[in-house]
Nucleic acid binder design. Structure first.
Lengths: 229, 229
DNA sequence: GTCTATAACGAGATAGAC
DNA sequence: GTCTATCTCGTTATAGAC
């Protein structure tokens, strides 16, 4: 009966994918706050209760969309990184950053879903953490490689931050000096500041030619973490 | 009839304020996407048509809330700046950055309204620009003062960015070198990356002791713009 | 076991008659 | 300004088809 099982499983996957595709379409139109199981079902010619075979609740559908978005972004960033895996750390760093920006511009509503305002009444479950970590892990890996090869030093930490920086280093990258870890986490957040400002319109009438501006900014972010070539 | 007119004008202002207060409460509960004139009216014991005498549409109410939020943030930042107006540029810079973070933590939903995901179906009118510019102008002023006193130099611009950086300098701060303007605009965006990551939960399980982390990060942002004391 | 359809609930929004 | 009839929503219970 493996054929029948395969067919059933395939049908289930296809319907699951169709539900998520339609949900993504609604995300673009109305925003995550108004995502509605009934509207998704209606658009697919199903009845709303049938959706519960695939997603136990509206929040579970949202969670699936969030994980998919993080994974899509992560895959894009990893592919861009792998394409220049043999280059120096600075080149790998900028490749990842530019991939993040490119993905965000190509998927603005999914970017808003994962890095924009929280959806009212929804809190992301732990299950989103691995997917959400992929880009960060990629950046950590680049910096770790650079450190193993050349040894990186960061700017001196103020006393009030030393303990926290050491704790972060233990959690995120035990091989790296705490100064570098603190700089890396800050650069990670700052990268999304640049992307978000472009995507959400804050650069309108301010930065016109965004690509070279972004490239320069993330190159300087890399310098701040100690990567210089 | 100036008394009656004054009373009328005062009543109108009071009701306008009450409408905005209730709308802000709903912002916190349901998010900007679901802001509804009817619900605001109901909560105030009015009928929805009465609200249209104060705000011609839901979008106009949203615009008023956005301008108020930018102004509240701007005032907070300006007050924090003025309190250390006699100090060096670095101190003034960090004071403004910390005020932005403090305001954001105190008003998360209003922060989400102005710096989070765009509200579906709403585009901000030009009228929001002056209020939206206040923090940026403050930062420009600090850097301009530092440049007039000591002369700032930025990292060399790549050829592909030179033209755009010169254009930005003309628009934003003609007194500053293009290198510094590019660095300043990037730092401005990066500041909001740090704030947004903390506010929207991206730092959960990553950065625990956020205040010293933030202070250190914005100090290094200032260094990147050329401020060093 | 796996799925879809019907019907219903309680809550909220909406449109229009009055 | 008020009231009512009619929508939407998430969700569940139930019954039946494959």
């Amino acid at each position: 009966m493996s054929t029948a099982q395969g067919a059933r499983a395939r049908a289930r996957m296809e319907i699951t994918a169709a539900i998520k595709d339609e949900a993504r379409r609604q995300l673009a139109g109305e925003g995550a706050a108004k995502l509605s199981l009934r509207a998704v079902a209606r658009e697919l010619g199903m009845v709303s209760s049938a959706l519960y075979r695939y997603f136990p609740s509206r929040d579970d559908l949202l969670t699936a969309l969030i994980i998919d978005a993080y994974d899509s972004l992560g895959e894009t960033a990893e592919a861009a990184h792998d394409a220049v895996a043999d280059a120096g750390p600075l080149r790998r760093w900028t490749a990842v950053c530019e991939a993040v920006r490119g993905w965000a511009l190509a998927h603005p509503h999914e970017y808003a879903l994962i890095y924009g305002s929280p959806v009212p009444g929804y809190t992301a479950p732990e299950a989103t953490i691995p997917a959400a970590s992929r880009v960060g892990l990629l950046l950590v890996g680049i910096v770790r490689d650079a450190h193993e090869k050349d040894g990186l030093t960061g700017p001196a930490l103020p006393a009030e931050l030393r303990g926290e920086a050491e704790r972060m280093a233990v959690d995120l990258a035990p091989a790296l000096p705490p100064e570098v870890v603190a700089a890396l986490v800050a650069a990670w957040a700052q990268l999304y500041g640049l992307v978000g400002f472009e995507l959400f319109g804050q650069f309108n009438r301010v930065v016109e030619d965004r690509e070279p501006f972004f490239r320069h900014a993330v190159t300087r972010l890399a310098h701040g973490v100690g990567l210089d070539r």
